[in-house]
Design a protein around this nucleic acid. Structure first.
Lengths: 183, 183
DNA sequence: TGTACATCAGTGAACGCGCGTTCACTGATGTAC
DNA sequence: TGTACATCAGTGAACGCGCGTTCACTGATGTAC
């Protein structure tokens, strides 16, 4: 049965949000179109009214999930929150880059384009609140810190040893802070 | 037809190497058991004489690929080589952690255990050649630098903009070097 | 050392399941009068 | 404003393909005498 235009827009958001959560938690391949649609409150047949293919959904989900929320953040405060055990354990609500980048760079060109755009925005955003006298220095700090944050999050997640996992988070936090102090 | 014991041992290595290369290049899910066996010069039926399942192969391939080659490396020299465009473009021969960690942490417990063991060894190895007066400082530098290296490699790979990709590599290299100088 | 036989690595056809995708149909929406 | 009809979002059965896994069979290996 046909539904109202507002309902259609709402359903689209629901699908993108469900896909965002499930992809982050379980990766692109192991989540099925039918599961996503069920989570969004629809049946799988309706999917192709919204998206051209699963690949299309992946690209659009990435673009949707990577649109930044708040702006002007302090880099060190951001890093402290990012590199927390809470964030590590919150796969489905956490950073899409850390959850999906290894799979994303093997996806189609649209998905890569969305990731690239997200990366650009994130670097610019972090550079605003980064330490450093000149703009180039701020940008370098943003890039280095962001690499360390994403890397540390992934390493801490793959460790089955909780102590090592915490150590990676804590020492990377300290390391980024030390970098800052020395300037 | 039966083959000799040496042939069996050799075939096993061939399968593990082929799997290592193909998994790094294309991820776990999109590589099929049949493809790996073909690359190793066998047919898919022989697979289950060597491994219990595809999941088993994944865990053993990770353990195989993560056994470190050389020891006592200088951290800065290592970082310079690691963060090069050559390494970025050499997915199938490059670092297994950067290529597979996002997928690995969603795999079974054996795969995670192999990754954790590899991470421990890598941190200890890098700590030996890391700057710092005390052991704790060396270890912190190893962890922070390794996080930054892995993160930067993944970010540079997902960028479809070559300039941004090079910038991430170069600036993370500079950032790690700056961290060193300030001690 | 040579022969006879048991073992077992490898082959390739076949199975079964799950997933992406399609499609004929339904019935609520929204437009035209 | 009310009614009649065209539109089209959603449903659920069905399709087809690919992949992991199994299995009966083959024939070289390696052991026992």
């Amino acid at each position: 049965m046909k539904v109202s235009r507002e309902q259609v827009a709402e359903n689209r958001q629901k699908i993108l949000c469900a896909a965002g959560r499930m992809f982050r938690a379980r990766g692109f391949d192991s989540v099925t179109v039918a599961e996503i649609m069920k989570d969004a409150g629809l049946t799988h047949g309706a999917f192709y009214g919204y998206f051209k293919s699963k690949e299309d959904l992946i690209a659009q989900t990435l673009a949707h999930a990577l649109t930044p929320a708040a702006s002007d953040v302090d880099l060190l405060r951001y890093a402290a929150k990012y590199l927390s055990p809470d964030h590590r354990d919150n796969l489905e609500g956490g950073c899409p880059t850390a959850a999906l980048c290894a799979e994303a760079f093997r996806q189609g060109p649209e998905a890569k384009a969305a990731m690239t755009e997200g990366l650009k925005q994130q670097i610019e955003r972090l550079a605003q609140g980064a330490p450093g006298a000149k703009a180039a220095e701020k940008r370098r700090n943003a890039i280095g810190s962001w690499s360390a944050m994403v890397g540390a999050m992934m390493l801490s997640r793959l460790s089955d040893d909780p102590k090592l996992s915490e150590e990676v988070l804590a020492e990377t936090r300290n390391w980024i802070r030390a970098q800052d102090k020395n300037r």
